[in-house]
Each structure stands twice: as C-alpha cells, then as structure tokens.
Measured scan of single mutants.
Amino acid sequence: QDAKLCERHREKLHYYCEDDGKLLCVMCRESREHRPHTAVLMEK
C-alpha cells in the first residue's frame, strides 16, 4: 500500500496534528501554521 502524500509538498505524511485533525508531512509540521500545534509522529 502506498503511503499518502502531502498535496502541498508531495512528501509522505508522518504526523497527525491534534489541533487541526489533519495529517502532516515534515514540511507542514515545521510550517508557521502548525509549529505551535500538538502533532504526533504516527507509527508505521
């Protein structure tokens, strides 16, 4: 099964943002929008 990719950055989605309920890639996780949020690394 292929991992889902971030629509914005075309990177694999490794994080779940608990504040927004969205899946994030590393680039999104470090963005100004999500940096202050609680995001957890998803298990494989």
Rank of each mutant, 00 (worst) to 15 (best):
Q1C: 12
Q1K: 15
D2Y: 06
D2P: 12
D2C: 05
D2L: 10
D2H: 10
D2A: 13
D2T: 14
D2I: 09
D2N: 10
D2R: 12
A3E: 15
A3M: 15
A3T: 15
K4V: 09
K4W: 07
K4G: 12
K4P: 03
K4L: 11
L5Y: 04
L5E: 09
L5G: 04
L5I: 04
L5S: 04
L5F: 02
L5C: 05
L5V: 10
C6M: 00
C6Y: 06
C6D: 00
C6F: 01
C6H: 06
C6K: 00
E7C: 12
E7S: 05
E7D: 09
E7L: 06
E7G: 09
R8W: 10
R8C: 06
R8Q: 13
R8P: 10
R8D: 04
R8L: 15
R8V: 14
H9E: 03
H9Y: 00
H9V: 00
H9S: 02
R10H: 11
R10C: 05
R10P: 10
R10E: 09
R10N: 14
R10F: 10
E11K: 09
E11Y: 00
E11V: 02
E11T: 03
E11R: 08
E11P: 02
K12P: 07
K12W: 05
K12S: 10
K12V: 03
L13Q: 08
L13N: 14
L13R: 12
H14M: 14
H14R: 11
H14E: 12
H14P: 15
H14Y: 15
H14C: 10
H14W: 10
Y15N: 01
Y15P: 06
Y16W: 06
Y16D: 05
Y16N: 08
Y16R: 12
Y16G: 05
Y16P: 08
C17H: 06
C17R: 04
C17P: 05
C17S: 05
C17K: 12
C17Y: 05
C17V: 02
C17D: 04
E18L: 07
E18Y: 07
E18T: 09
E18S: 06
E18A: 08
E18D: 06
D19E: 11
D19V: 09
D19Y: 07
D19K: 07
D20L: 02
D20V: 03
D20R: 05
D20T: 10
G21K: 13
G21D: 04
G21V: 01
G21P: 05
G21W: 01
G21F: 03
K22W: 02
K22D: 03
K22H: 05
K22A: 12
K22N: 07
K22T: 12
K22S: 08
L23T: 09
L23K: 09
L23R: 11
L23M: 13
L23H: 07
L23E: 12
L23N: 05
L24K: 06
L24N: 03
L24I: 06
L24A: 07
L24V: 04
C25W: 00
C25V: 00
C25P: 02
C25A: 01
C25N: 00
C25G: 03
V26F: 07
V26T: 13
V26E: 14
V26K: 14
V26A: 12
V26S: 14
V26N: 09
V26R: 14
V26I: 13
M27L: 11
M27R: 15
M27H: 15
M27F: 12
C28P: 02
C28T: 00
C28I: 00
C28L: 00
C28V: 00
C28F: 00
C28N: 02
C28H: 01
C28D: 03
R29M: 10
R29L: 10
R29P: 05
R29K: 14
R29A: 06
R29Q: 05
R29H: 06
R29T: 11
E30Q: 10
E30M: 05
E30N: 11
E30W: 06
E30I: 07
E30S: 09
E30T: 07
E30D: 11
E30K: 09
S31L: 07
S31D: 10
S31A: 10
S31F: 01
S31H: 14
S31Y: 15
S31W: 02
R32I: 10
R32Y: 12
R32V: 13
R32G: 12
R32W: 09
R32M: 12
R32L: 13
R32A: 14
E33C: 00
E33R: 04
E33L: 04
E33N: 09
E33M: 03
H34G: 03
H34N: 11
H34I: 01
H34W: 01
R35E: 12
R35V: 05
R35G: 09
R35D: 10
P36V: 08
P36K: 12
P36D: 08
P36I: 03
P36G: 15
P36F: 06
H37K: 09
H37A: 04
H37R: 02
H37P: 04
H37M: 00
H37T: 04
H37I: 01
H37F: 01
T38W: 00
T38S: 10
T38E: 08
T38G: 08
T38V: 07
T38P: 04
T38C: 08
T38Q: 13
A39M: 10
A39D: 11
A39P: 06
A39S: 11
A39V: 14
L41Q: 13
L41P: 12
L41S: 07
L41I: 15
L41A: 09
L41K: 12
L41V: 12
L41D: 11
M42G: 09
M42F: 08
M42Y: 07
M42V: 11
M42S: 08
M42C: 07
M42E: 10
M42H: 11
E43P: 12
E43T: 06
E43Q: 09
K44I: 02
K44D: 14
K44T: 11
